[in-house]
Structures are given as structure tokens and as C-alpha cells.
Amino acid sequence: MEIMLYTAIIIALIALVVLTVYIINTLKVTKEFMNDVSTTLDGIETQMKGVTDETTELLTKTNRLAADAEQKSAKLDGLLDGARGIGETINEFDHSLKQLTNSVSRASQEEQEKTSQAVKWGASILEYVFKKEK
């Protein structure tokens, strides 16, 4: 019976040693894995810092472009207001020119009738004068 007790103790010790070796190997692999994770996280942190810096720079440029576009839009609004004023002035000038043309045309028609009457009277007078001389 003693041999069985010693054999059981030896088997238990061997199992304990094997278990210890496997635990040590598992801890070594876990340590390597954690080092790789740490390195990866450091790289991600560096990349995120770069992305954050680029995003901040891009946002700054976007704000500058928006301000520049706003200034140019304001200048363009002034230019468009001026062009609108010129268009209104041209329309008023066109209207005045039409009124003047209509007035001249009416006056011309009235004068044409008077001129026609004067020519007829003049022709009649000349006819009368030429008839008397003959």
C-alpha cells in the first residue's frame, strides 16, 4: 500500500509540474500578446494624433475659405445692386426715348399736314401768279 501512496504522490507531483509548465508558457504567450497590443495601441494613438492635427488644419482652412467666400459674396451683392441700378436707368432711358419718339412722330404728322396745306396753298398761289403773267 505504501507503494501506491508514493506512486500517487509522484503522479500528483508530475501533474503539478506539467501544469506549472503549461501555465508558465501560457503566461509568456499572454505577455507577448499584451506587448503587441500595447505597441499597436501606441501606433494607433500616434495616428490618431496625426489625424486630429490634420482635421484641425483642415477645419481652419475651411473656416478661412468660408470667410473669403462670404466677403466675395458681399462684394458681388454690391456689384449686382449696381448692375440692377444700371438696368433700371437703361429702362427709364428707353421709356423716355420712346416718349420722345412718339412726341416727335405726332409733331411730325401734325406738321406734315400743315406743310401739305402750305404746299397746296403755295402751288395755288404760284399757279395763279403764272396765269396772270401769261
Rank of each mutant, 00 (worst) to 15 (best):
M1Q: 08
M1L: 14
M4Y: 13
I10G: 03
I11N: 02
I11S: 04
I11D: 02
L19P: 00
T20L: 12
Y22F: 15
Y22W: 13
I24N: 04
I24F: 07
L27K: 06
E32Y: 05
F33V: 15
F33Q: 15
M34F: 10
M34T: 06
V37T: 06
V37K: 09
V37S: 11
S38R: 08
T39M: 11
L41R: 15
D42I: 03
G43S: 13
G43R: 10
E45C: 01
E45N: 15
E45Q: 15
Q47T: 08
K49Y: 02
G50M: 10
T52Y: 03
D53R: 07
E54M: 03
E54Q: 09
T55Q: 04
N63W: 00
N63V: 11
A66E: 12
A67V: 02
A69H: 10
E70Y: 02
Q71T: 04
S73E: 09
L80S: 06
G82E: 13
G82R: 03
A83P: 00
A83E: 11
E88T: 10
N91P: 00
N91A: 11
D94M: 06
H95V: 14
L97T: 15
K98D: 13
K98G: 03
L100Y: 01
N102S: 12
N102R: 05
S105K: 14
A107T: 08
A107W: 03
S108Q: 14
E111W: 05
Q112A: 13
Q112N: 08
K114S: 10
S116C: 01
Q117Y: 04
Q117D: 14
K120R: 12
K120I: 12
A123I: 11
I125K: 11
L126T: 04
L126P: 00
E127A: 11
E127D: 14
F130E: 14
K132T: 06
E133R: 05
